[in-house]
Design a protein around this nucleic acid. Structure first.
Lengths: 334, 334
DNA sequence: CTGAAAGCGCTTACAG
DNA sequence: CTGAAAGCGCTTACAG
């Protein structure tokens, strides 16, 4: 906290006066347009900017242009490591394009998601990254507001909206095929209830292709607790599968804990492969073999879609990569 | 992405026209001042707002008031779970006071911290939370800009700036005393090189008070890798301590991995206590006994300091709480 | 209690 | 190539 009153900031008018030009010219120089400026005049203006330490008032610019150089980000759970990693990647990508990210967590019980969207709109954001699932009404609101938007990490293409996704089906298949490669024959899937989640389908496809019958299928929440509960259920039911594909790292961590508490060894008794590739699964033992989502590339694509908008909605799908550690039964490498 | 052109938004003038009043009156109603409005007039205005679905343009308001209802947050590493948790808490706290958080990561190599501070200032933020260490120049810049600011999670009081901290000394003492309570006599500390970090002092004090001589002291970086390296060094040096206080959860996770790789059992051979209390240490085995920082309360205090500014800089220190799990040698509870 | 009007600091169509 | 001026949508001192 400062005792001094806020000093009167340097404005465009000060710069214009110092450089002996009009404020319009200052704008032309600073924005590289829309008019050309004579080289010498330009020099004088830039000099004035430097000498006076001028910084444009971005609120004024946003008002004038009807648009701020900020992008909104709607996430559903900023406590979840996957969203944290996603945010991190989006933050880098937007910084690279000189955009500020305004993050809004739809977890907050006080404010409805619709209100949060309207809030962002009233801040004049020029684009919106949506990292959670919207209701039809919320989706319509975004469209009505006319804010360019892109969904990221969703279960698939959603009509009328641009999206960035990952090939869940082949990613899950990669993971299951690796487990099959270890010689395991009964392989379970622990994931969400959504029928749109390709991971469940990928799991089923891989097993069917190998002429194995899909093992236990458990639906749970996308969290550590969800994985823990699912693990306990598997243990209660008796017939433990030899391998498990978890739909997220957090679920896998919960499964790991449940197994350990029951004295079931991973990977000797049950092998695990997770999905996401967040750093959290590198800190446990055994380290998790995981299907990695290329978050950096996905984030870049999302920001690019907003910054260089293209009128037609597009859905871009990225491939995944299997990162082999020890939880699947592979030997330790370091 | 939407095909429609951005619709012309409803403005204050539309509301005024619909309600049959001046735009000034609309402002008085919406801002509850500075002038009183007759109850019936107020009703009409609120009705118009509702009917037209009016939302104030916050860029215009910010320009007019010279201040946006946004707070800046300067963090040094948004990939670090501790900062993530801190951000999460600050996000909640600022939402509770209807402020948006504008986060800036000083990790980004492209932009200097000073430029990031100026960027935030040009967005007309009304306050700044600083979660990293500033140079004297950066600190002076913040003061010159006249932005109310508060440092959080620092190593102690910094003159001229408000701060929110934690009692590192007594927190570390709590952790070490717990290890001493287990009967361990040689207890190491793994932390940062900073002489301002009270955790090292707390460790020393606790041992001295118990008439024990401080065990190995290792300085490393605040990261998983830093902990891993320190662990390897301890192992190389031969004489392993019976207990270790780690200055952060991440360091402790690194130590845990190093011990495991060497076949050293935790807590049977070496007991561990960490500092921070992030959720990451609950997912490993053994779960980490940790000195918890009250992030929610700290975040509330930080935001409060900015929203209800008080002219004189103050330093507020919070206490910590020991969360006992298994890494210290205590029996499993669940 | 209400309104007309100036002002916040930008951008940009228009005129020269 | 440059400038005078209107306009963006608010807030608020001033007048009534």
């Amino acid at each position: 906290m400062s005792d001094d009153p806020r000093p009167r900031p340097v404005t465009r008018a000060d710069v214009a006066r110092y450089a002996g030009v009009s404020t319009a010219v200052v704008s032309y120089v600073l924005n590289d347009g829309p008019k050309a400026v004579a080289p010498l005049t330009k020099e004088r203006v830039l000099d004035a900017v430097r000498v006076l330490g001028y910084r444009p008032n971005l609120a004024a610019r946003a008002l004038s242009k009807g648009q701020a150089d900020m992008l909104g980000l709607l996430v559903s759970d900023n406590g979840n490591p996957f969203f944290t990693a996603l945010w991190h990647a989006l933050d880098r990508a937007s910084a690279a394009r000189s955009r500020q990210l305004l993050i809004v967590n739809s977890d907050r019980t006080q404010t409805s998601t619709s209100d949060q969207i309207r809030d962002l709109a009233s801040r004049q954001i020029s684009g919106l990254v949506i990292a959670n699932i919207l209701t039809a009404g919320e989706q319509a609101l975004v469209e009505n507001l006319g804010i360019p938007s892109v969904m990221i990490g969703q279960f698939g293409d959603i009509d009328g909206m641009s999206g960035i996704g990952v090939d869940f089906v082949s990613g899950a298949r990669q993971g299951v095929e690796h487990l099959i490669g270890h010689g395991y024959r009964d392989i379970a899937f622990v994931g969400s209830v959504s029928r749109h989640d390709g991971r469940e389908r990928g799991w089923r496809e891989a097993l069917t292709a190998a002429q194995l019958s899909p093992g236990p299928l458990l639906h749970t929440t996308f969290s550590y607790e969800g994985g823990y509960d699912a693990g306990q259920k598997l243990l209660r039911d008796g017939a433990l599968p030899r391998g498990i594909l978890a739909a997220s790292d957090q679920i896998a961590l919960g499964l790991l804990t449940a197994m350990r508490e029951a004295g079931v060894r991973v990977p000797e008794d049950v092998a695990l492969v997770s999905f996401d590739g967040t750093s959290a699964v590198d800190y446990v033992w055994p380290r998790m073999t995981t299907v990695v989502q290329p978050l950096e590339a996905m984030a870049d694509a999302a920001i690019a879609a907003l910054v260089e908008p293209d009128t037609t909605p597009r859905f871009v799908e990225f491939g995944t990569e299997l990162r082999v550690r020890e939880s699947c039964g592979c030997p330790t490498v370091r």
